[in-house]
């Protein structure tokens, strides 16, 4: 395999040095076999510019830290092989989220706020009995909840979403999937109507304009379109019942 010389154009801005305006900086790196953007960015930092800011944690595509724009498309950097990219690779931070510096954005505060707004926890009046057995659940339902719970809050669906880019308060696919996760969980005692109070709005479930980039790009391949449809159906029913 002939070795390629890759050209990276990377967004640079350090808020601690505001006199240096945001810019794209060019780097060159020889591609190696099996190179991911995790390997490439760390080599650039260690060998060429130690001030280069980016985020990785698990580097195994399970923690959701490393989403960036890769040639314009949001995705997880750690599992992106340079092999699948052209010779020139443009890397930008995710839009929507607050910039920390270079490729690093603040997804943590954004998602904490989302989870507060949607009250993304089990609401129940039951008191936990330390001595008793667990409540039973059918295994297929447990799997269904697990599938919705696989979201890693990476922000890819938010960055890819036209509505989220235009309105700061839109819950986005991650938020709606989170709502679906609690709607199907019988341990959560909120009625669809209570959920409607929170998300039956344009900031919530009716803000989606159906471009479905979220569904195409989700790195966990969560069926976000189906989840949205599920929540919309439930919310529409709740709205109709409310009118009566």
């Amino acid at each position: 395999m002939a070795q390629r010389l890759l050209t990276f154009e990377i967004f640079r801005y350090n808020p601690a040095s505001p006199e240096i305006l945001p810019r794209l900086q060019e780097f060159h790196l020889e591609e190696t076999q099996g190179m991911t953007l995790f390997i490439a960015l760390n080599r650039l930092r260690e060998e060429q510019d130690p001030s280069l800011m980016f985020d990785f944690v698990c580097r195994a595509a399970v923690c959701g830290s490393c989403a960036i724009l890769i040639n314009g498309r949001p995705g997880l950097a750690c599992k992106t092989l340079t092999h699948d990219l052209p010779d020139k690779i443009v890397l930008m931070p995710l839009p929507v989220f607050k910039l920390v510096g270079d490729l690093s954005v603040d997804t943590g505060v954004w998602f904490r706020h989302l989870n507060e707004r949607t009250e993304a926890w089990i609401h129940t009046d039951k008191i936990f009995d330390r001595q008793g057995p667990e409540d039973r659940m059918d295994n297929p339902l447990a799997h269904q909840i697990y599938e919705a719970e696989r979201c890693i809050e990476c922000g890819t669906c938010i960055a890819a979403c036209a509505t989220a880019n235009m309105r700061a308060d839109f819950l986005g696919a991650a938020g709606l999937n989170r709502i679906a996760r609690f709607l199907i969980d019988p341990r959560d005692e909120r009625s669809p109507r209570q959920v409607f109070e929170v998300v039956g709005t344009d900031e919530g479930v009716f803000g989606c304009v159906g471009l479905m980039a979220c569904d195409d790009l989700c790195p966990m391949e969560i069926p976000l379109q189906a989840q949205l449809a599920h929540v919309r159906r439930k919310m529409a029913l709740a709205a109709l019942r409310k009118k009566k």
Binding site: W121, K126, R130, D135, N139, D185, R187
Partner: peptide, 18 residues
């Protein structure tokens, strides 16, 4: 065992006996 059951109470979708 108490810890596992409490986590279930908090919403963990443990795989179940079939």
């Amino acid at each position: 065992p108490i810890a596992v059951r409490q986590l279930s109470h908090w919403g963990v979708p443990w795989s179940r006996v079939v």
